[in-house]
Write a protein that binds this DNA or RNA. Structure first.
Length: 399
DNA sequence: TCTGGGGTCCTAGGACCC
DNA sequence: TCTGGGGTCCTAGGACCC
């Protein structure tokens, strides 16, 4: 259970609880359960972000369901005007997507997150909280338990409580030097300064309403544990293909690749549970066949006969913008060397986008799979909702 | 039987180079 | 052979985020 409605939370279904543990509750109260549906979420997110990009000077997409809006140049607006502006945004997003939102406005990202947190909690805010004075900022800081501050996780939360710091305000009273010493160095120092109202985190604006990642990964747990090299190769090749698609979709190339295998963390085997290997490629690429070849080499280093693996993943780091890779003087642009490669990948992406994911795949990803059977690494998505907005076969039918 | 899938930034040590 | 002050890259891991 990763995302729960207010009603589900009220039943006591915990974040991260595995389905089998809450099965009785679910049956008793007829709780509706859905597998994750990334295609639908991604498309709805894109609709919201595109709208936001059209109404504010700067937009940073922070995650699939959160964004920072830069309001620079709007400081002169009075409090009611800013509140009205935020309300208008909420109404528009709701009209277009039926997605409810809350907005926190403050001089730093950390304070804006804190304001947003309070706006969600207190219905009197009507979804918007503006912290436009030092007095209101300190009032807000006093309302929030320290572990709910953005950047304070479980470890620091416990540590701060043990030191008698209970609220965000207590933390904001600490000195930068203290935070540097006790909260992970420069990270903690910035956190405290942000709480005090001094911006330390820039806005990383995205101009086109999409998010350009610095690393791209595709990782999955298998439907059942796998041990044979060929099965794992199939999985790793399929994951590499998906990650390479994501890479091309954001117009990037990679020169660093990691492959990892994971064993069952809940099983009888003691740690380590994951084994990983990394390679630096001689030149940046987004070509699926090149990347699958590299993935295979990494897997050959990792794989041990007799071990049962439950999970695998492929991660691309060292991303470079396509067309402007940082090459040394003596290297050729990859696309100049192999002009047909880019065209082939474009065709591959077009086919898969038009006729469905995995319509065309690299042979390595399917070689080990007998005809007519699902790939052994696929998870069981038993309760998937439909991809209403991104798949022809799942369109709403009205009749 | 069943236990998610992504990301970010920072630190530190060792190899290697000038 | 020892001394010294840089720098980069690679690798691994920790803490946090959604």
């Amino acid at each position: 259970m990763v995302s729960r409605s207010a009603e589900a939370k009220a039943l006591g279904i915990k974040m991260g609880a595995p389905l089998f543990q809450v099965r009785p509750l679910i049956e008793q109260h007829q709780v509706q359960v859905f597998s994750s549906n990334y295609a639908l979420y991604g498309d709805m997110s894109y609709r919201v972000m595109s709208y936001l990009a059209s109404v504010v000077p700067e937009l940073e997409i922070y995650s699939i369901d959160e964004a920072f809006l830069g309001l620079h140049g709007m400081e002169r607006y009075t409090k009611p005007a800013l509140n009205d502006f935020a309300q208008e945004i909420r109404e528009q997003v709701n009209q277009r997507t039926h997605i409810p939102t809350c907005i926190g406005i403050a001089p730093t990202k950390t304070l804006a997150k804190l304001a947003n947190h309070l706006a969600k909690q207190d219905t009197a805010c009507k979804g918007v909280l503006l912290l436009d004075s030092v007095e209101r900022q300190w009032w807000a800081l006093g309302q929030v338990p320290v572990e709910e501050v953005w950047g304070v996780g479980r470890q620091y939360g416990q540590k701060l409580r043990a030191m008698g710091l209970d609220t965000a305000a207590d933390l904001a009273c600490c000195s930068e030097a203290w935070a540097r010493k006790h909260m992970g160095g420069v990270v903690g120092a910035r956190l405290v300064r942000e709480l005090q109202g001094t911006p330390c985190h820039q806005l990383h604006a995205s101009e086109d309403g999409t998010l350009a990642r610095k690393s791209i990964a595709h990782t999955r747990s298998f439907g059942r544990p796998l041990s044979k090299f060929d099965d794992l190769l199939g999985a790793v090749a399929a994951f590499t293909s998906r990650a390479a698609e994501k890479l091309r979709a954001q117009g990037s190339e990679t020169y660093m690749m990691t492959v990892f295998l994971g064993q069952n963390r809940f099983g009888p085997t003691p740690p380590p549970y994951t084994y990983s290997a990394q390679i630096t490629l001689p030149t940046s690429t987004s070509n699926t066949t090149d990347l699958v070849r590299a993935a295979r080499a990494l897997l050959e280093k990792l794989w041990q006969p007799g071990l049962l693996y439950k999970k695998a993943g492929v991660i691309f780091d060292g991303l470079e913008g396509h067309g402007q890779p940082q090459l040394s003087l003596f290297e050729q642009l990859p696309e100049v060397q192999r002009p047909q490669s880019a065209a082939l990948m474009r065709k591959l992406d077009q086919l898969n986008s038009r006729f469905g994911q995995n319509c065309v795949q690299v042979a390595t990803a399917v070689a080990a799979v007998p005809k007519g059977t699902p790939a052994p690494w696929l998870g069981q998505k038993r309760q998937c909702s439909l991809a209403r907005t991104t798949s022809w076969k799942d369109l709403w039918e009205i009749g």
